[in-house]
Amino acid sequence: MTIPAFGLGTFRLQDDVVIHSVKTALELGYRAIDTAQIYENEAAVGQAIAESGIARDQLFITTKIWIENLSAEKLIPSLQQSLSKLRSDYVDLTLIHWPSSGAAVSVKESMQALMTAKEMGLTRQIGISNFPIALMKEAIEAVGIENIATNQIELHPFLQNREVVEFAKQQGIHITSYMTLAYGEALKDGTIQDIAQKHQATPAQVVLSWAMQSGYAVIPSSTKRENLASNIEAARVELDAEDMAQIAALDRQQRLVSPEGLAPDWD
């Protein structure tokens, strides 16, 4: 089992907006969709998938367990609720969305509950999100490296998260980048605009291509058909070594997502 390099994110999209986004994306050829319990859109995503007519085995669906459901007694029932909303017997990937605040629930307890869910057939793969190195080590100790499909982290040209990436690579854990376009800020960067002009591509395509060529999976979201269509073409943009080096030089440790009371001790 592998993680698709390209998928659709649904963060902040709800109701008819997310239904339209998912259905449009599926029409355009997207086959991986990322959602989460806290997004409160799993039922809408499930409706969009059902109405698309695309066979379940053609899709890769990811959801994420919210912090209130990380305990052994709550995790599996909460995932079963997610499956009901998504109208599916299983998801392809289930992640711990954020580490438990103040370690109220241990990483070991949550990861072992996820492993049980995998053994029950509720999820094909399991993984983590927003885990720094110290907590990645705890997750590895709890279930073994071979059972951690990915660590989904904020990663964009202005926050390249090199320590976490390097550790994950050493361990053989795949990285999924979220916020890859930095809330659109990366699209305004002069260096990225110059590279886009050079390749007759959009700035978004350049950033997404950079992430995928770096070995990361990406899950950009959009509500506009033209952007959804453009983004999926990012894989066709081939950046050269000079382009990659120029984007690497944009790193400035600019973290955009660090919720108070929720964020772990970042590396």
Score class of each variant (00 low, 15 high):
Thr2Gly: 04
Pro4Ala: 09
Pro4Met: 06
Leu8Cys: 05
Gly9Ile: 02
Gly9Ala: 02
Thr10Ala: 03
Phe11His: 09
Val18Asp: 06
His20Met: 10
Val22Arg: 00
Tyr30Ser: 08
Arg31Thr: 05
Asp34Trp: 03
Asp34Glu: 13
Ala36Ser: 02
Ile38Asp: 07
Tyr39Pro: 02
Glu40Ile: 04
Asn41Phe: 08
Gly46Lys: 02
Gly46Cys: 02
Gln47Ala: 08
Ser52Gln: 03
Ser52Thr: 05
Ala55Ile: 05
Arg56Gly: 03
Thr62Leu: 04
Ile65His: 06
Trp66Phe: 15
Leu70Gly: 11
Leu75Tyr: 10
Ile76Ala: 10
Gln80Met: 10
Leu83Tyr: 00
Thr94Trp: 05
Ser101Phe: 09
Gly102Asn: 04
Ala103Asp: 15
Ser106Lys: 11
Gln112Pro: 09
Ala113Cys: 09
Ala113Glu: 08
Gln125Val: 09
Ile133Phe: 10
Ile133Tyr: 07
Ile133Ser: 10
Ala134Arg: 10
Leu135Ile: 10
Met136Gln: 15
Glu141Arg: 12
Ala142Tyr: 04
Ala142Ser: 06
Gly144Cys: 07
Asn147Phe: 07
Asn147His: 15
Thr150Tyr: 01
Thr150Val: 15
Asn151Glu: 01
Leu155Arg: 11
Pro157Glu: 07
Val164Met: 14
Gln170Ser: 15
Gln170Gly: 14
Ile175Tyr: 00
Ser177Gly: 00
Ser177Glu: 02
Met179Pro: 02
Leu181Glu: 05
Glu185Ala: 13
Ile192Ala: 03
His199Ser: 06
Ala204His: 06
Gln205Trp: 10
Val207Phe: 11
Ala211Met: 09
Ala211Tyr: 08
Ala211Asn: 08
Ser214Phe: 11
Gly215Lys: 09
Gly215Gln: 09
Ile219Gln: 04
Ile219Thr: 11
Leu228Pro: 10
Asn231Glu: 12
Glu238Ala: 14
Ala245Val: 05
Gln246Arg: 15
Ala248Asn: 14
Arg252Lys: 15
Gln253Asn: 14
Val257Asn: 11
Ser258Gln: 13
Glu260Cys: 04
Asp265Glu: 15
